[in-house]
Write a protein that binds this DNA or RNA. Structure first.
Length: 428
RNA sequence: GCCGCUGUAGCUUAGUUGGUAGAGCACUCGGCUGUUAACCGAGAGGUCACCGGUUCGAGCCCGGUCAGCGGCGCCA
């Protein structure tokens, strides 16, 4: 049985069994105490001399941290036990006595990254991986409710994506291929068939960034929807973020406690989010002491300062056209601004979403490319999408890891990624 | 890529004006005990990141190299 199922009054005085790994072990004369963990929880096991066979007792005495075992015994309520219940062993089987486990109470973030393959077993990482699952699960649940189709874009691409300087190049049968840095263009292709589409797939960026919210490989949740405008897209994202936050609060109470999250800060995530034009946000930044020019881009420091004392996310919409890539649709009433938006998470976490309306008119797209010195030939199929019954549409890209970093109240993106990849870390 | 900081035992670290390297945890052995990342005693464990220089003498001062961390730019 699983440990979670033992941790209630229904098994008191009856025989239970558990198998897992020794989390803590203390030897105490004729008693051996160990805390055993499995994927569902932890429970104290007491092994008493004379109750188990002499051989079993000797083995129990030798049990080290991470030793794999199976026990059978009587369950009782015990205030002194870590989770309130304990198993008084009558049988114990050891699968493997673990070698000296390198993780002790003194550990640095850096060391934990070096031995991440072992740190995954910790209560912290286990809790985070469970919360990750909730986030992904609730994204899929939400999108299903909204009639979106999940699709699978390619990860190998032929070079045509925004920017260009931050692509990872990989050899491809004598040609050059790249790892995708965004699936947006492919989603736009899917959209003409399925109308509402999304994907949750990795994106890769070779940026030599060294900040607490950058990694070279991240989980990218992107969506694209026909007939939807910028403000409507924001409505959807607002509902979606609330849906995810609520799922986390109801599904992962224990896990949020393990990572010491103040859940009140998640409970305040409700409608309506703040929704300000770009210029208004520049003004807010200035009120908070930032020196910003009229067309300043918001860097990490600015976002942190602006969102520090917010209690829920903020939309920043209609950025200056100059600051944004060519595919953003300029406002027909005000071409100096595009119909886009970012979502900034509160408490200083900053940008988690970038999205907006895409240019859907072929000629307009080509002229925007030319004005940014891009060659439309390089984007041949993307332009081609606008040749056959183009329609207004919008989309967004959300950094799943960033979202979870914020919701879990953690200080670094690499804490929510099982095996984070950065400029300087490829192992384990 | 730029700027800053750091590198001492498996881990976390102390190390004074330059004078032969100290601790806690983990480990081994012994003791005690319904223990709570127990306690008591003992033991083992070091190329002070690497290379060079100054000096009678360098963990410490100087130069270089490497590695890591933090910040910036960029972005999700």
């Amino acid at each position: 049985m699983h440990i979670r199922d033992i941790l209630n009054d229904s098994h008191i005085d009856s025989t239970v069994n558990a198998r897992g790994w020794v989390y803590r072990a203390r030897e105490s004369g004729r008693l051996v105490f160990m805390v055993v963990r499995d994927s569902t929880g932890i429970i104290q096991v007491v092994v008493e001399k004379g109750v188990v066979s002499p051989d079993e007792f000797e083995l129990a005495k030798r049990a080290t941290i991470e030793t794999s075992i199976e026990v059978e015994g009587k369950c009782s309520k015990e205030q002194k036990a870590i989770t309130g219940y304990e198993i008084h062993a009558t049988k114990i089987r050891v699968y493997q006595i673990a070698e000296n486990f390198p993780i002790t109470k003194d550990k640095s973030d850096e060391f934990l990254l070096d031995i991440r393959h072992l740190w995954l077993r910790s209560r912290e990482m286990t809790a985070i991986m469970k919360m990750r699952e909730t986030v992904l699960d609730s994204i899929r649940g939400f999108m299903k409710e909204r009639d979106y189709y999940e699709v699978q874009p390619p990860m190998f691409v032929g070079g045509m994506v925004e920017g260009g300087s931050t692509l990872f190049e990989v050899p491809y049968f004598g040609e050059k291929a790249y790892l995708t840095q965004s699936s947006q263009f492919y989603l736009e292709a899917f959209m003409f068939s399925l109308e509402n589409v999304y994907t949750i797939s990795p994106s890769f960026r070779a940026e030599k960034s060294r900040t607490r919210r950058h990694v070279t490989e991240f989980t990218h949740y992107e969506a694209e929807a026909a007939w939807v405008n910028n403000q409507q897209m924001m409505d959807i994202e607002e509902d979606m973020i609330i849906y995810i936050a609520q799922s986390l609060l109801t599904t992962n109470k224990e896990e949020l406690e393990v990572v010491k999250r103040d859940v009140n800060k998640v409970k305040t995530v409700e409608k309506p989010f703040y929704r300000y034009r770009y210029e208004k946000v520049i003004e807010i930044g200035r009120q908070k002491g930032l020196q910003l020019s009229d067309a300043a881009d918001l860097g990490e420091k600015e976002e942190r300062t602006i969102t520090q004392d917010f209690d829920k996310p903020m939309f920043v919409y209609n950025f200056p056209t100059l600051l944004k890539p060519f595919y953003h649709r300029p406002d027909p009433e005000d071409p100096a601004h595009v119909l886009n938006h970012d979502v900034l998470a509160p408490e200083g976490y900053g940008e988690v979403i970038g999205g907006g309306e895409r240019i859907w008119n072929k000629d307009e797209l080509i002229s925007r490319m030319k004005s940014e010195n891009l060659n439309p030939e390089d984007y041949q199929w993307y332009v081609d999408l606008r040749s056959y019954g183009s329609v207004p549409h919008s989309g967004f890209g959300l950094g799943v890891d960033r979202l979870l970093t914020w919701l879990a109240g953690l200080d670094h993106i690499n804490k929510v990624i099982p095996f984070p990849r950065t400029m300087r870390r490829l192992k384990p």
